[in-house]
Simulated scan of single mutants.
Amino acid sequence: MGKEKKRKGSCEAEAEAVAERGGGEEKRKKSRTAPSEIKNKEKRSAVHAKLKREKKILKRKQAKARDAAYKKAIELGEEPPEKKVPRTIENTREPDETVCRPDDEELFAGNDADEFSAVLNCGVTPKILITTCRFHSSRGLAFIEELKSVIPNAHDYARGTYDLKKIVEYAKRKDFTAIINVHTNRREPDGLYIIKLPDGPTAHFKLSNLVLRKDIKNHGNPTSHKPELVLNNFTTRLGNRIGRLIQSLFPQEPDFRGRRVVTFHNQRDFIFFRHHRYIFDAKEKKEDSKGKATQAAKGKNLPEKKVIARLQECGPRFTLKLISLQHGTFDTKGGEHEWVHKPEMDTSRRRFFL
C-alpha cells in the first residue's frame, strides 16, 4: 500500500510537471506570437482588438482598486496612498538655466526698469494701433475687427502703400504705446508683429488655427468692459519678457463687472489664445445614493446649494508661436535680435524656450 501511494504521488508530480512545462511552452508561444507577426490580416486585426480590449478591462480594474483603497483609507482616518503622476513631455522637459525663480532679485529689478514698466505700473494708458500688410484680405480685416473688441483702446488704420517704418514714426507722434501688424498670406492671416513703442522690442509670431467669432458655436458677444488677463506657463527669462509684452497691450485695471477673461496659455512654446465670459450660478445640490444631506439643510428643511461657474467663449480663437524677438522697433536690415528660432533648435521634443 505504501509503495502504491508513493507511485501514485510520483505519477501525479510528473503529470503536474509535464502540465507546467506544457503551460509554460504555450505561454512562450503566445508571447512570441505578436499581432504584427501574423500574416493573415483578419486574424491579425482580431488578435489586436482582443489584446486592446483585455488591456482596457485591466486598466478599469486597477482604477477601481485604487479608488477603493483611497476611500477605505479616508474612512479609516489613514493617510491615502500617493497618486501616481503620469510622465508627460512638460514634466520631463530638459533642464533650463533661464527658468525664473521666486527669489530672483535680479529679475524683479530688471522688470522695474524695462520697456513695459510704465504701462504695467499704470503710469501710461495703453493705446494700440492695428494695421494690416499691404495685400490683405477680408478674413484679415474681420480678424482685426475682433481684435479691436478684445483689446481696449485699439484703433485700426488702413495700411495703404506706407512702409511699416513710417507707420512706426506716425504712431510715436500720436502717442500710441504699441503697434499690431497682421500679416496675410493666400487670404489667410498667418503672422503677427507686436511692436512696443517708442523703443521696442518687436516680436514676430506665427499665427495658426484661427477661428473667428461667427464660426464658434454658441458664442457670446463681448461687452466694452476692461477684461481680466490670464498668462500661464511663461516660466523662462524669454517667456517672462514675452508675457510682459503681451500684458502691456491691456489696461492693468480690469472691470470685474464685465466678467470678461482673456487667456494666453503657453504649452510647449505654443501660445493659445482664448476669450471668455463667465457667470456664477447657484444650483440645488442633489442627494447622494444613500439619501444623505447636510445637517444644516436637514435642520432648516432647505435644499443644499452649490455654486458652479459657467463659461461662454466670445472668440476669436488662435495659436501663436514665437519666431523672433528684436531689439528696438521694426528693422529688417539693421535690427539686432535678442532671440531667433532656428530649425536646429527642434532636435529635442522636451526642449522649450518660453
Results as ranks from 00 to 15, higher is better:
residue 250 F to T: 00
residue 70 Y to D: 13
residue 266 N to A: 03
residue 42 E to P: 07
residue 147 L to W: 01
residue 56 K to G: 12
residue 45 S to H: 07
residue 182 V to E: 03
residue 218 N to H: 00
residue 324 S to W: 00
residue 175 D to E: 13
residue 149 S to Q: 07
residue 155 H to V: 08
residue 142 A to F: 06
residue 107 L to Q: 09
residue 159 R to V: 04
residue 342 K to F: 13
residue 306 K to M: 13
residue 177 T to H: 03
residue 286 K to I: 08
residue 134 R to D: 07
residue 268 R to F: 09
residue 284 E to W: 08
residue 252 Q to H: 11
residue 298 K to W: 12
residue 225 H to K: 09
residue 127 K to G: 03
residue 168 V to F: 02
residue 245 L to G: 05
residue 36 S to M: 13
residue 108 F to G: 09
residue 111 N to K: 12
residue 259 R to P: 06
residue 285 K to L: 15
residue 106 E to S: 13
residue 71 K to F: 10
residue 203 A to I: 00
residue 181 N to P: 03
residue 143 F to K: 02
residue 159 R to W: 05
residue 302 L to N: 14
residue 188 E to F: 14
residue 5 K to N: 12
residue 264 F to V: 04
residue 215 D to M: 07
residue 121 N to K: 14
residue 309 A to C: 14
residue 240 N to K: 06
residue 92 T to I: 02
residue 318 F to K: 01
residue 209 N to Q: 09
residue 58 L to A: 15
residue 288 D to N: 04
residue 161 T to A: 14
residue 211 V to D: 03
residue 245 L to S: 04
residue 189 P to C: 05
residue 187 R to W: 10
residue 68 A to V: 11
residue 278 Y to A: 01
residue 219 H to I: 00
residue 66 R to L: 12
residue 63 A to W: 14
residue 184 T to F: 03
residue 346 D to E: 15
residue 229 L to W: 01
residue 308 I to V: 13
residue 220 G to P: 00
residue 158 A to H: 15
residue 224 S to Y: 08
residue 329 T to D: 04
residue 57 I to G: 09
residue 269 D to F: 00
